[in-house]
Design a protein around this nucleic acid. Structure first.
Lengths: 197, 197
DNA sequence: TCAAAACTAGACAGACCTGTCTGTATGTTC
DNA sequence: GAACATACAGACAGGTCTGTCTAGTTTTGA
């Protein structure tokens, strides 16, 4: 298989994925028809069904893309900070610029939980896997924080990570409900209160 | 208008509302057809459209019912407790039995935010109004708590209420994502840590 | 008793949905 | 230049959706 062939093949697939990810997030999964995805991707229907066996599989693929992107942003945010405290808080703070975007509509994986009631479906697993990944990063940063300074030694890193995840999820869902940024600022303050300002 | 007429008229309406509230919550709004609501309510299509001008208006009415019920449960939980600390924690603790129900699928108003992207729509306002109502109760209970005992006097009631709402929302959304109860228990612990165990 | 109101069943319009299929065009590989 | 993969356009089947409408029946209230 030549390189040119590969590029051309994957570019159709990627165009579909890009369009679908955007439409599913903005309009919702059920509210978006496959025909709209096809039209906006500029591909033929047969081409689409050549790449994805069904709409559901497209949804799953698009959520996987989103999940990878989100984790990358999280990691970039962590790595951009140097101090343990800032590294720890970066996961929450990263939410703020995201929520300020006009496109912000909350967590795509919570949307998936709404639109796909079956919690055992592969689509739903993408969400739990992502939250697990975020949690493991937060636990690592919490340990890092606790052992970084005397001032934090009274904290239990594991419990702190749990608190953090509760605040993280609460921030995102309240930001969606109110379509506002202030819940995220409040969640940051909550965590700051827990670790001491 | 006689009482009998009122009862008969409202019983068809109430049957529709009951069925719709259940189906919309369990299956989702878009995933539920008006025909299914009509069949399961045992009413004629014309009767349905006599009571509700559109599916959207039915959704709004059903969310309003849910909102009233939820507030009633919250208030009952508060009133069942006597100690300020228990009254304060009751709003969070009430989530546990709810999440244990087989039907539990998270917050119906967050679902509405997913399925109705327009944050300015009347449907969405039902959710923000409910969360505002819960917050005002939590603020009242936080003040009550802070002034109840020396041990709580270092706390800022307003900020505590904000923390509480973040934890509350985080608990519900994580419980939905993971389809589990432990996020609620974690949120309770988070708040207990904030006020001192 | 009788008119008005509310109910029943269900056909129907018109739009949308997913997924299949036919047939053609293009470009690469051997 | 034959074989192949991949792309294209778009008709089509078979089903769903919301909302309208006709027509007949029951209930209600004065």
């Amino acid at each position: 298989m030549s390189t040119a062939k590969k590029i051309s093949a994957s570019s159709a697939r990627e165009r579909i994925l890009e369009v679908a990810t955007d439409l599913f997030y903005r309009q919702g999964y059920r509210a978006t028809g496959i025909n709209e995805v096809i039209d906006k991707s500029g591909v033929a229907k047969a081409t689409f069904y050549n790449h994805f066996p069904s709409k559901d599989e497209l949804y799953e693929a698009s959520l996987n893309i989103l999940s990878e992107n989100e984790l990358r942003y999280v990691d970039d945010g962590i790595n951009a900070a140097t101090e343990p405290r800032e590294r720890f808080l970066s996961v929450l703070k990263w939410l703020k610029p995201w929520a300020t975007e006009t496109n912000f509509r909350g967590c795509a994986f919570l949307h998936a939980a709404t639109e796909v009631p079956n919690a055992e479906s592969k689509i739903r697993k993408v969400g739990t896997r992502l939250y697990d990944s975020i949690r493991s990063r937060v636990e690592r940063l919490a340990k890092e924080l606790v052992s970084s300074d005397q001032a934090y030694q009274h904290l239990d890193a594991k419990k702190l990570a749990s608190d953090y995840m509760v605040a993280f999820a609460g921030a995102v869902s309240q930001a969606e409900i109110y379509h506002a940024v202030w819940p995220i600022e409040q969640a940051i303050e909550t965590i700051e209160r827990l670790i001491g300002e």
